[in-house]
Design a protein around this nucleic acid. Structure first.
Length: 402
RNA sequence: GGCAGGUUGCCCGAGUGGCCAAAGGGAGCUGACUGUAAAUCAGCCGCGCAAGCUACGGGAGUUCGAAUCUCUCACCUGCCA
């Protein structure tokens, strides 16, 4: 497809990490980059101009959510996702594959380290009814909004994502859980590959039918859980299909993140962009970058912000806690974000206590800025050649509290 | 002045002889959150490490046993004058 969509910049000497430029019809993305999540065509609690102001380079929305509400035809009529939500920059859409997991099994995506024999009470989100079931041809969903029945196939996902019109779209994949057997993971990877093939075919058909529209890059999604042979095999299976880049997906154990990303990226050509789906805690970002990931998206900064959890160089803390009632310092020392340069912890504490909507807005601006800046700083450290030092310094402070 | 009703833990409010340290909210406190079913969810919430102690307006009773029954005092609220 488009061979000039990604250019590698500087690489880390003894690992797969690198900087780069990812080109889209709506602008370039300097990588590594953190992509803000705007599932329903909105980064929750903040306006697009705030996302720009805090340095966000792109936004990722979700095909399943926008299909249910307001419907892809409306987004298309509005002129596409970016126009609809007034975000001028690059856009991504996820295929709905993740909802196979989140609506299907309701499992946590990432397990904490040192899980010896998965404890089901830890993993199963209590009280959630299964809303999605998978078969060879696709997935049948029950809408979480009204219970109505819907069906996604690779072709349906492609059509929706073409209507939404994001610059980078993802193949429809089956996202498995850590509870599935090795045998199931194996069959699932094979199915995701068959689905990928169908996605490429449909994507080509749709692209050729509308030559006037800006080119949408299609990324294949690599599954395979924690198994090296499955991950490597998955990439090898997807490579000949002609994707523009890859997404690395799946539920995983935190401690395996680096190895999983490395297995995948080692199998990929240098010039192909790699997006790690849904990962965004600081230590995970360092791990992922070092092992070859270029872009990330994660709900964590914004979701956590709405619940009062604040990122700082000394780790994450909860500003709603009583100790911040009279703390008139910024959310994080030295932070350059709008919130930290204008407001105090005591004020944010009060806004959360009083349930004022601005609490979500101000906390989200800070957290998104924190992670965006972290990834920017990682990029700069690679360019300077002191990635390892920067990581040691940052993580030493971030996890100092133990 | 007469009649009726009421007073429960920080607040609101259930409970009308034992299963009541007392339902349920709220407030308060703490924790979780990784391709968003999330401005959500979970735990704690009289004192004490514990044995136990103190509690349902105050006091006095009845009873094996009272927040719940009786008497009395205080205060509050309706309706009648």
């Amino acid at each position: 497809m488009k061979s000039d969509g990604f250019t590698v910049g500087r690489s880390l000497p003894d690992s797969l990490g690198r900087t780069g430029i990812l080109r889209t019809p709506h602008g370039d993305i300097a990588t590594p980059a953190f992509i803000a999540v705007g599932t329903k065509a909105s980064v929750k609690a903040v306006l697009p101009e705030s996302v720009s102001a805090l340095g966000g380079q792109a936004v990722l929305a979700n095909a399943y959510h926008l299909y249910l509400q307001p419907g892809p035809d409306i987004v298309e009529s509005a002129g596409g996702l970016g126009r609809f939500m007034n975000w001028p920059g690059p856009t991504f859409t996820d295929s709905g594959g993740f909802q196979v997991l989140s609506l299907g099994a309701g499992f946590k995506k990432v397990l904490a380290m040192n899980v010896d024999g998965l404890r089901s009470d830890d993993v199963i989100a209590a009280g959630k009814t299964r809303l999605a079931t998978v078969d060879e041809d696709g997935v049948t969903f029950k809408s979480h909004l009204d219970g109505s029945k819907h069906r996604f196939t690779p072709e349906v996902s492609m059509r929706i994502q073409h209507q939404l019109g994001a610059d980078i779209i993802f193949a429809f994949d089956e996202c498995t859980t850590l509870m599935n057997t090795r045998d199931y993971q194996e069959r699932s990877v094979e199915r995701t590959e068959r689905w990928a093939r169908r996605c490429v075919t449909e994507h080509r058909r749709l692209t050729e039918s509308r030559p006037d529209k800006p080119y949408q890059a299609l990324f294949g999604v690599v599954q395979g859980a924690q198994y090296e042979d499955l991950r490597r095999g998955a990439v090898r299976g997807l490579l000949p299909l002609g994707f523009d880049g890859f997404g690395i997906g799946g539920a995983l154990e935190k401690e395996n993140l680096g190895a999983i990303v490395r297995w995948c990226c080692e199998e990929m050509p240098q010039e192909m962009p790699r997006h790690l789906l849904g990962i965004g805690e600081p230590d995970d970002i360092f791990t992922a970058v070092e092992n070859g990931a270029d872009t990330f998206d994660c709900v964590s900064p914004s979701r956590v912000a709405r619940n009062g959890a604040i990122y700082s160089t000394d780790g994450r803390y909860n500003v709603v806690t009583a100790r911040y009632r009279r703390d008139f310092g910024p959310l994080a020392a030295g932070c350059d974000c709008y919130t930290c340069t204008h407001y105090t912890r005591a004020y944010l504490h009060h806004l959360f206590k009083a349930r004022e909507m601005a609490s979500c807005t101000l906390a989200t601006i800070h957290n998104e800025r924190f992670i965006v800046r972290l990834v920017d700083d990682i990029r700069l450290s690679i360019e300077r050649g002191d990635f390892a030092d920067f990581r040691a310094e940052f993580l030493g402070s971030y996890y100092a509290r133990g």
